[in-house]
Structures are given as C-alpha cells and as structure tokens.
Write a protein that binds this DNA or RNA. Structure first.
Lengths: 202, 202
DNA sequence: CGGCTAGTGCGACAATTGTTGCGTTAGGAT
DNA sequence: ATCCTAACGCAACAATTGTCGCACTAGCCG
C-alpha cells in the first residue's frame, strides 16, 4: 500500500518508526490548530523536527499524510453501535457521523478535501468506507434476527447508505447548518423504506 | 454577490463584459482538458489572453472562477423532470445527477473540490443547492395532487435529500464504480419511506 | 469633443511549494 | 566489532503562486 508502510516493512527500526510517529503527531497537532486549511507539508515537517524532503519522500503530499493518519487510526478497532433496535443503531451511527464532521478539527473533512487531489487520500477514503460498511453489516443481521426486517435478504450496504448519506449531504455538500433532528429522521426513513422492502436484493 | 457581478453593475461596458466572457470560456476549456486538477489561474489567464492580475483581482481564486461559471450557467433556466410519477421524476433527477458527476469534465465535482478551500465556491455551492431543491419542490406538490403521497404535508427537502444523497455518497465519497441501478433504487426507497410517513412535517 | 476613472496590462517582487544531488547517520546483518 | 545501505539532513535550485505599484486604456458622462 503506502510508501510509509513499505518502508516500515523494509526497515522497521527505531529511527524510521520514531520519525513516523513524530510526523503523524505533528499532522494531528497542525490539524487541531489550523484545520485542514492550514495543513501544509512545510508546517508538519517543521513541527516534527524533520526536514521537508523526508516528508515529501515518504508521504509524497498532504494526502499521503492524512492517509497514513487514517491508517494508524484504523488500527484501533472501531465498533458499530448496539442500542437494541435498528433505528436506534442507525441514529447513533448518524450522530457519530455528524459529530465527526462538526468537531474541529474534522479528520473526515480533511480527508475528503484531500481526496480530490491526492490519489493516496482517495484510496484511503474508499478503503475506510468499505471497512466501515462491512462492519456495520452486523446491524442489519441483528435487525433481521430480532424480526425488525423481513426475513428475505436485505442489502445491508444500500440500507446503510440510505440512512447515512443525507447527513453527509447536508453538512458537506449543502453546507447547511447542522440539524440535530436529521440523524434520527434519516435513520427512521431508511428503516421504513427497508420495512417496505426497498432494499431487498432481487 | 461576486466581485465580477458588482463590477459589471458598476461599469457594464464592452471591455469588462468581453473579458469576463473570455475568462469564463477559458475556464470551461481548461476544465475540459485537464479536469478540475489542471485548473489554474495562470492557465486560465493565458488561454483567455488576459493578465494574471486581472483574474486575481476580479475572481480572487479558482473557486471564484468556478462560482462565476456556475452563476452564468444558472442564468439558463433548468427545469426539474416531469415523468408523470414521483418515483419516475426522482429517478430521472438522480440519473441527471449521476451523469453530471461522471461526465468529463464534471463541473459539479470541480465545484465541490473548490468549495473546500474557497469561500466563494462554497457559497456558490450552497446557493445552487438551495435553488435546485426549491425548484424540485414542485415534484412533491404534483405527487400529492396525484394522490401518490398522503395528504398531510410532506417535507419536500427531506424527501429530496433522501432520494438524491445516496448517489453523491456513492460516487463522491465512496468513489465506488457507478451503479446504473442506484438512481432508481434510491428514488424508490425514498418514495416508499415517504408513503410510510417518514417525511411528514410535525 | 474632452475629462474622469474603473478596469486592465505590465513587471518586479516575495512567498510558497516541490525537486535533486550528495554527504551523513543510524540500524540491521554478518 | 564491522560493514552495508536505507533513510535522513542539507543546501541549492526551479517552478509555481500570489501581491503590489504604476502606467495606461477604454468606456462613460458632461
């Protein structure tokens, strides 16, 4: 995958790992200060007490840095919510998403912005989404077991997209003011559609 | 609104208008060649046979250029589809959206990318969405008249978001391969949810 | 026609961004 | 302990990006 990981495989030793840690910490710190706007290779390198060229060579660009931060964060295992009902789970998921987009700095936002002009960031984004959706498949399975959804197979990915997409759409594309009701409304709407058989795989 | 429009109001004369036309044409041309990646102020200015400084002063940055292109395009009046059924209308709308994201160059994509680091582009984006949704309100009204939706008031914006958001989510955020079925599936799901009262304003 | 000035052209400049070649260092291997 | 080389530091460079002051041009108005 990324150059950083390749390098780590080839010489996982103390210095390489230490510098990676320094740089990734610096990315997070810079992100916290200036948001994804003020994030620059120069700034990261300076803060990490590392030379520009090192960063350019190992991570190529800002997108590469963000991709690596995401990869490092992916090592901590995230768990989908489990509230006892499908609509509750999806609502909780949406609230989590909404918060991740509103918190400053928003890593999610930064990754999206970078993914438009960085191949590494784009790949990291795609991969992150695939993982998340795969993990959330369990929500649908549990709902079927509880009898909340018709026994016939429901396409988990479609359902999850229907539930979560509006939150992103509202905050990222429309850039509208956050609506505290949206997470629940969107989740409920998706569940109703699912109950009506909208996402049954045919 | 934009500097360009202000300027045009204050001195709408031949040269100002001519240069605006040259520059906006150049933006579209550059976009067509290099996509939203290769879009640079320098390139636009050169192609338009105009000096860099002129562009910087009137449009500030790439986002301003795109915002003005959008504004100019907004002058041609777009009409929401009218197929005779709500699900048909929403499907057609989604297919239009999907095409606008897949066509090269994608003005929509470029505007999104720019909106992350240009205030003007961000505002243009927000305004564009508000206009589109307002215009699409008629779809819901017609559906109610036809008896496709319960008589009680349905929140048009929520319904439209539920229908369209997944398409953007799929193509822009997930960057997954285009799914020719998604426009219809997503539209139908939204209609089913609406029929179940998911978007009734309370 | 002739003056006024918004808007443009021009060049010089500063700041940022990214690249390259080469010497040095540190960590892994024998 | 010693060698080997991946990875880093460094400096110099090139390219890009954005700004500023000033001259000038063209459209508007009297």
């Amino acid at each position: 995958m990324s150059d950083a990981t390749t390098a780590r495989d080839r010489r996982p030793g103390g210095r390489t790992a230490r510098i990676r840690a320094q740089v990734l910490d610096a990315v997070r710190a810079e992100l916290a200060e200036g948001g994804h706007e003020g994030l620059t290779v120069e700034g990261v390198a300076t803060r990490a007490n590392v030379h520009r060229t090192t960063v350019y060579r190992r991570w190529r660009d800002v997108g590469g840095l963000l991709a690596d931060v995401i990869a490092a964060a992916g090592e901590i295992d995230w768990q989908p919510p489990d509230t006892g009902s499908l609509s509750g789970d999806l609502t909780a998921l949406n609230e989590e998403i909404q918060e991740s987009l509103l918190v400053r700095p928003s890593l999610a936002r930064a990754l999206m912005a970078a993914s438009f002009h960085s191949e590494q960031a784009a790949r990291a984004q795609t991969r992150l989404w695939a993982d998340r959706y795969a993990q959330c498949g369990i929500l649908v399975e549990r709902a079927v077991e509880r009898g909340e959804l018709p026994a016939r197979h429901t396409d988990a990915r479609s359902l999850l997209m229907a539930a979560t997409a509006p939150v992103y759409h509202h905050l990222v594309l429309q850039r509208a003011d956050p609506d505290p009701r949206l997470p629940r409304r969107s989740a409920v709407a998706a569940v109703l559609a699912a109950a009506a058989g909208a996402f049954s795989a045919d």
